[in-house]
Nucleic acid binder design. Structure first.
Lengths: 176, 176
DNA sequence: ACCTGAACACCGTTCAAGT
DNA sequence: ACCTGAACACCGTTCAAGT
């Protein structure tokens, strides 16, 4: 099971990740995988959530001292992790992010941060949806630098652009 | 060519739209399509941009009177059109929106609106990327209401959530 | 517990040929 | 101009069977 996930991360491109290709790379018959994972979708879900383990969690003292900053850091780190795995972006988009354990943990921490920043519960939940959509979407945009025309933007420019929009959102969320 | 596009819109789900299925529904051999469209990707591009023709363009006088409002209306209308075609969302996500004629027209109008609202050129271009990513992303989220847990949100709630985030962004974009 | 062989019902795309 | 037949190299998944 774990072996499978590792192999997948090395191979780039979820589009090119077929059960058969994976089985081939493991030197095994295609159907042998179904003893371990049940499904192609399930397999991809596992890989996606696994990657999110790399997102940096803020220390408790940073969360207390500057909750808004901590939320921004979570989103920035998520952006960096996602951009570092461009081949997985189509899958993240399709599923609106992973809904596994890692994703839930991150969501919980960020929601907590918004609460500490004085954002009301209902608003915080709206804000989370907005932030997640924005972060995944912009990471996906950054993962395909080709069609951002004339001349194409550098990774640094894209990250700065992401940060600009993120700050607009956070400003609106925590209030004027 | 056009006939093909129409048939596709009726059929729901880009995932289920194969060349072969399309050919079947047209009562024609699969390879016959290649005389008209060259590619599956090309075909999908055509469909996506075609749908954007339904997005409402603001009248010149509204654009002049309230440029920020006009930009918001474009994004809201885009959201509505996208949500009305949930089956196409995976394709929009993958391509970060259409890059055809309709998409370019809309982008041009919105950029013009931001300019009239007093946003500097470079900032306006950043803002456009942010707005597009946000709008497509949220429309995609709204197109899969299933996994927005306990209880799932209604279309109206999702649209309100979209509008909230959109206003946060516009507030940040046009300045404090 | 973990694998394989064989099969089913699919794909996108190309090539040569027909009218 | 527009189509077809036949083929190539693929898919995900299931079923029965082997060790």
């Amino acid at each position: 099971v774990l072996v499978a996930a590792r192999e997948l991360l090395a191979a780039d491109g979820v589009g090119n990740l077929s059960m058969r290709a994976l089985a081939r790379s493991l030197g095994v018959a295609p159907n042998a995988l179904y003893g371990h994972v049940g499904n192609r979708d399930q397999l991809i879900d596992l890989v996606l959530d696994d990657v999110l383990a790399q997102v940096h969690r803020p220390a408790e003292k940073d969360l207390a001292a500057n909750p808004t900053g901590a939320v921004r850091d979570i989103m920035l780190s998520s952006y960096d992790v996602l951009v570092a795995h461009p081949g997985l972006m189509p899958a993240y988009l399709e599923r609106q992010g992973a809904r596994g354990v890692q994703a839930q943990q991150l969501g919980h921490v960020a929601l907590d941060g918004l609460g500490r920043a004085g954002v009301e519960e209902a608003t915080a939940r709206e804000a989370m949806r907005v932030l997640i959509v924005y972060t995944i979407g912009f990471a996906a945009l950054s993962a395909r630098p080709a069609d951002l025309g004339d001349p194409p933007l550098s990774p640094a420019e894209l990250r700065a652009n992401f940060r600009t929009g993120l700050d607009w959102l956070l400003l609106g969320i925590v209030g004027t």
